[in-house]
Each structure stands twice: as structure tokens, then as C-alpha cells.
């Protein structure tokens, strides 16, 4: 955006979108929860009452504060190895957000490049991208992820890489459609006629105009990645213990869930809240950016 725009007294479309966003319940609510979770995650080392890795076998499976034997020493109790559950939830949120963001970036980059290329050039490029997308969609994600993790060994990096390389399909499809709409607009054809290089057309003309769709897909995929990581960790092939991952905590707690249901209820609820906030934000942003979609 160039400087004169900002100086204009007239309200720009972007500012109008902001104003709508601030009035939108979903955006506010989702944004607030997500912000809170993000703050907890970022400042986990400062606010967590205990080291999430510090085990104490004499303090195992203590009830949370509302339970019969609970106390404020461990507000959410402790797990099977006597680690503070609250601290692990804080750090677990950190891992989830990290996975969500990294997957969003990697898959967003892959998907956007493919989608924009297909949408802009069309023809053969479009055919090839379409083929790759269909191939990717027809591979069962979980099975492929499990197979890759089995080869590469499971670690945080591997999980981030695998999810990043698998979840770009929606980016590609949406970016392709959005780019096709934009590329026939007058100013793009005008830029082409002026002989502007393709790279510059894409960066300065196309991308800013598909940004809205990109953000919406990005939030959805972030939520998707967080859920998939949790599922992989639940199956034992995601993030490795003792790293606190919310999915792993559900998996570790489920053996005693009939006797200590909070062991699965708490991390599951945390995961639910995190994904819910991201989805609310994403949905809200979609409404804000395309108000006509929601009459």
C-alpha cells in the first residue's frame, strides 16, 4: 500500500473490514481466546508453576483442585509420572501452536505457489497441478503420515515437516480459484500489456487480491494441523514423550480414564478450546472479508 492511500480521509476498504471485524462476535471471541492461549504458550516458562518435565514418582496422579484429594499445589493435578498437569498443558499449547503455525507456513507456501501458478498460467501447468492435487487427495493422509514417520523416526521436526508437506491441498485449490478470478481483471491484463515481469505481477497485483482467501484457508489448515498432530501423537507416532503434546497427554491418560477421567478431559478440552478459537476466528474473518456470503 502506498503512502497517499493512508492519508486519504475517506475510509479505505481495509479499514472498513477492520471495523466489521471488531464488531463481529466470532472474531472477537475466537481472537480473545486464541490470544490468551498464545500468551500462555509464549510465556509458559514464566507462568508455569513447575518444570513440565520434572517428574516425581511420589506425587503421582494427584487429583485436580476440585477433586477429593486435590490442592492448589497442583491446580490440575499430576500425571502418571507425577508431573504437574497445568504446566504440561501450558507447554502442550505451545507445541500445538508451533505445529499449527509451522504447518500453516510450509503448506501455505507450497499450496500458494502451486495454486497461483495453476490459476495464473492455466493450460499445462494447471493440468499438472490438478494431477498432483488429485494424487495427494487420493492418498490416505493418516496412513501416509504414519508411514513417513515410521521411516524418518518421530520427532517434532519430522511431524512439522510431514504435516507441512501433506496439508497444502486446500491452499492449492482455493488459491487457484482465487487467482483465476483475479487474473482476468483489467489491471492484471493491463500490467501484462505493459510487459511487467510475471514475478512482479504475481507479487504486486495478484497476491494482495487473494490475501483474504489465503488467510481464511490458513486458519482452517492451522486448526486441521493441530488436530492431526494430536491424532498422530495419540497413535504414538507424533511428538515423542516426554515432550508435552495435548494429543499425547490424552493418549497417556486414557489407560486410567475410567478411574481418573480428568486425565483425558483436561488436555482434550484444551485442544478443543484451541481449535475452536482458531475456527471461530477463521469463520469470522471469512464473514468480514466476504460479507455478502452471509446475508
Amino acid at each position: 500500500m502506498s503512502a497517499p492511500d493512508l492519508l486519504q480521509p475517506v475510509v479505505s476498504p481495509r479499514a472498513r473490514a477492520w471495523r466489521r471485524a471488531l464488531r463481529h462476535g466470532g472474531v472477537l471471541f475466537g481472537g480473545a481466546i486464541l490470544l490468551a492461549i498464545a500468551l500462555v504458550a509464549v510465556f509458559a516458562p514464566l507462568i508455569a508453576p513447575y518444570d513440565p518435565y520434572a517428574q516425581d514418582l511420589s506425587q503421582r496422579l494427584i487429583d485436580p483442585v476440585w477433586g477429593p484429594k486435590g490442592s492448589w499445589a497442583h491446580p490440575l493435578g499430576t500425571d502418571q509420572l507425577g508431573r504437574d498437569y497445568l504446566s504440561r498443558i501450558f507447554y502442550g499449547a505451545r507445541i500445538s501452536l508451533l505445529i499449527g503455525l509451522s504447518t500453516m507456513c510450509v503448506s501455505g507456501l507450497i499450496g500458494t505457489v502451486m495454486g497461483v501458478a495453476a490459476g495464473y498460467f492455466g493450460g499445462r501447468v494447471d493440468d499438472v497441478v490438478n494431477f498432483v492435487v488429485v494424487t495427494r487427495l487420493s492418498m490416505p493422509v493418516i496412513l501416509i503420515a504414519l508411514a513417513v514417520v515410521a521411516v524418518a523416526g518421530s520427532s517434532l521436526t519430522v511431524v512439522m515437516a510431514v504435516l507441512g508437506c501433506l496439508l497444502w491441498d486446500r491452499f492449492a485449490v482455493v488459491m487457484r480459484a482465487a487467482t483465476r478470478q483475479v487474473r482476468d481483471l483489467e489491471y492484471v491484463t493491463a500490467a501484462e500489456a505493459l510487459g511487467m515481469p510475471v514475478r512482479r505481477i504475481v507479487i504486486s497485483e495478484i497476491l494482495p487480491n487473494v490475501l483474504g482467501a489465503l488467510i481464511v484457508v490458513a486458519t482452517l489448515e492451522m486448526a486441521h494441523a493441530i488436530l492431526l498432530e494430536a491424532a498422530l501423537s495419540f497413535l504414538g507416532l507424533g511428538v515423542q514423550p516426554p515432550t508435552p503434546s495435548l494429543g499425547l497427554m490424552v493418549s497417556e491418560g486414557r489407560q486410567v480414564m475410567f478411574f481418573k477421567p480428568w486425565l483425558i478431559a483436561i488436555p482434550g478440552a484444551a485442544l478443543f478450546l484451541l481449535v475452536l478459537s482458531i475456527n471461530l476466528l477463521g469463520d469470522g474473518l471469512r464473514d468480514v472479508m466476504a460479507p455478502e456470503g452471509r446475508s
Binding site: A223, L227, I264, V275, L276, N279, L280
Partner: peptide
């Protein structure tokens, strides 16, 4: 819709077993 989309399926399945089953 929003709530459903945020529910991890493995967690939901465990809750079903716990509540409806046990």
C-alpha cells in the same frame, strides 16, 4: 458446526465410550 469442527475425533470417541458405554 463450529463446536463439531473443533472436537478431536479420538477424544470424542473416548468420551462416548466413557459416558454412553461405561
Amino acid at each position: 458446526a463450529v463446536l463439531g469442527q473443533a472436537m478431536p475425533s479420538f477424544w470424542f470417541a473416548l468420551l462416548l465410550v466413557l459416558v454412553l458405554g461405561v
